[in-house]
Design a protein around this nucleic acid. Structure first.
Lengths: 189, 189
DNA sequence: CGCGACGTTGATTTGCCTCAACGATTGTGG
DNA sequence: CCACAATCGTTGAGGCAAATCAACGTCGCG
């Protein structure tokens, strides 16, 4: 688990073993059962979470009472509600385990301390943020350009293994269509 | 112009006048006429641009040959194609002046140098990235939750002055609807 | 002045949603 | 270990939001 994290960090910055130890000491492992939450509606988000195993989803409940999934998070992804975390506002987004999941919690107060003690962590989280942003931009472009059928097809092609892991109605929500229509699309070539 | 930039930077980090001078020396002012471009289809993006006056749009041409606008940029915004810039890949996004526009160009090679000479710039650009990401997240949530009519209404309410500045067909593209339907929505209460 | 860029209008079509009902599977308490 | 209830996926009928297409009016600029 720690090896994964170390390797992941070293993809982006040089960090010594001692520095990593220090970094690691700021992280708290948490184990989540299916459907347990890391962040509830109305709470202010105070931490970021690095997923070491399992799967989380970040979603909200819209006016009609439907769940709308914004993201999934899987192994080696960070997940949090940045808007709530950085602006100190109550979250209407919910972070919940899709399956049994292990995360490392990094409290925002700890991170501010880390920025002081290991300045290069600032660079690390800048790069993570850049990459996260780019992924989101690509996704928006997809959603704009393609029909639901094409969005579905390309998502399945790009993530064949992941599609097996989540219930179909969650996939539908993430892709912005109804479960019924997703079912219809799968049927028809 | 420089005052705007200085004030803008000081919203996020403490920076001395001397440091700002150095920062400023890495920036090159560019003047764009309406319809001039900063980034063309197929080019690799090599810089970020801080807009001091005017308005830019970032868009691409989809399979059907339609322009799809991803963003606008106005005074005191940074604009670039992060995917092209950071991954060194050719851009299919185009950055073009909607009106006469002045920008300060920050080449990515210069920025890497700046990170070394003034480490706190790393923090600055981390924060900019975070804020940009949050804005995008909010936009996605909007697009998911609201009907076209509600999207249009809330955008006009939030940006009454901006709506006057761009042609209606660009607004339609940005909001993800056709110009005809936008026209229809404006007519009907 | 004339042409191109922009906005509008209406008729028609369609992609996707809604609603309701029904199987299949899973899981859980007795 | 079974029975029954959730949970999840599927199907089909009907409806609506928004796109498409085509035509026309208008303005501003070269």
């Amino acid at each position: 688990m720690d090896d994964n994290l170390l390797q992941y960090i070293r993809r982006y910055i040089d960090i010594s073993d001692a520095e990593f130890s220090l970094f690691r000491s700021y992280l708290t492992p948490l184990m989540l059962k299916k459907k347990e939450t890391l962040l509830k509606n109305g709470e202010v988000c105070r931490a970021r979470y690095f997923i070491t195993s399992g799967c989380l989803r970040l979603y909200y409940i819209d006016q009609k009472g439907n769940e709308q999934i914004m993201h999934f998070g899987i192994e080696n992804w960070w997940i949090t509600n940045y808007d709530s975390l950085l602006n100190n506002i109550p979250s209407h987004l919910i972070i919940e385990a899709v399956e049994k999941t292990q995360v490392l919690e990094l409290k925002e107060t700890s991170l501010q301390e880390l920025y002081q003690r290991i300045p290069k962590t600032e660079r690390f989280f800048r790069i993570i943020m850049e990459r996260t942003y780019i992924a989101t931009q690509r996704r928006i472009e997809f959603m704009y350009s393609l029909s639901s059928e094409e969005i579905l097809k390309s998502f399945i092609d790009a993530n064949p293994e992941f599609v097996q892991r989540v219930p179909q109605y969650m996939l539908a929500s993430y892709l912005g269509i109804t479960p019924e229509y997703l079912s219809f699309l799968r049927k028809n070539p």
